[in-house]
Nucleic acid binder design. Structure first.
Length: 257
DNA sequence: ATGGCTCCATACTGGAGA
């Protein structure tokens, strides 16, 4: 089974690119982030016509996450990350597909740091870790997939020294990611390609894609049993070069059935 | 140190992204 994650940066503005990519890449399951659309404006029919059932949690203007599947409708488990009833952002959605728990997430950016946005990011990370721990304790196959807005190590940034004070790379955030992984998760991309420079995002500014000035911030974390089934992974980086494209590229893993 | 680009809202500009 092929599972993908793609921060689309506007699901309606991105619809032609998304549909073209779905047709070419044929993932079985897709986690989408940054829908930037209210619940009722999700392009349900176009995605259905492409062969995918979907569940989504929209929000006006910002955020928004979805899970798409062409191997049975995602059976929704939750659409909110537990731990803060005041948190109104649509950043987490979770479902079972083919016996695998899929947690689709869009971790807050957190800039500028320090400040309230950075505090929100660290708090969100803490809630994610608490929830992730509970998922691991259930001993079922789980994948946490999405835009974590963290470059885990210096290998994941084109110019690390430029990013040390940024909310995506500050020590607290890298530590939060490391602590989460240490619960027993496997960073799928980095595990299969331990020394390779791999990026999933390139800024719209300054010709970043052509210069390969990228970041690796979209990740898959696998539970132990699922990690054993990991076959391969990749970044569809050519999609980043398409017309009217997102600043992220789709990322995918393949799991033994 | 700054600004470069692109999205959305209901707009001729501003907030957010990373």
């Amino acid at each position: 089974m092929k599972i993908a994650t793609y921060n689309v940066n506007g699901v309606n503005g991105r619809l032609p690119v998304l549909l073209k990519w779905l047709k070419e890449a044929k993932p079985h399951v897709v986690c989408l982030q940054e829908l930037k659309a209210p619940q009722e404006k999700f392009p349900e029919q176009a995605i259905k016509d492409a062969g995918y059932d979907a569940i989504w949690h929209g929000q006006k203007s910002w955020n928004g996450v979805a899970i798409l599947s062409r191997v049975g409708k995602p059976e929704e488990l939750r659409r909110v990350l537990p731990g803060d009833p005041e948190d109104a952002h649509s950043r987490y959605i979770e479902a079972i597909v083919q016996g695998i728990v899929i947690g689709g997430l869009y971790l807050p950016n957190g800039n500028p740091a320090p400040g309230p946005k950075f505090d929100y990011k660290l708090g969100w990370f803490k809630r994610l870790s608490a929830h992730a721990k509970k998922l691991l304790a259930q001993e079922v196959p789980v994948v946490l997939a999405g835009d974590f807005n963290v470059m885990p190590t210096e290998l994941d940034v084109y110019k690390p020294e430029r990013w040390v004070d940024d909310a995506l790379f500050r020590p607290e955030v890298r530590k939060a990611f490391k602590t989460l992984v240490a619960q027993g998760w496997t960073d799928a991309i980095r595990t299969l390609h331990p020394n390779e420079k791999i990026y999933t995002f390139w800024d719209y500014f300054r010709n970043a894609y052509a210069r390969d000035a990228g970041l690796r911030i979209d990740h898959f974390l696998l539970s132990p049993d699922l990690a054993k089934r990991l076959k391969k992974c990749g970044v569809d980086r050519e999609v980043r070069g398409w017309e009217k494209t997102s600043d992220h590229a789709p990322v995918w893993i393949e799991i033994k059935d």
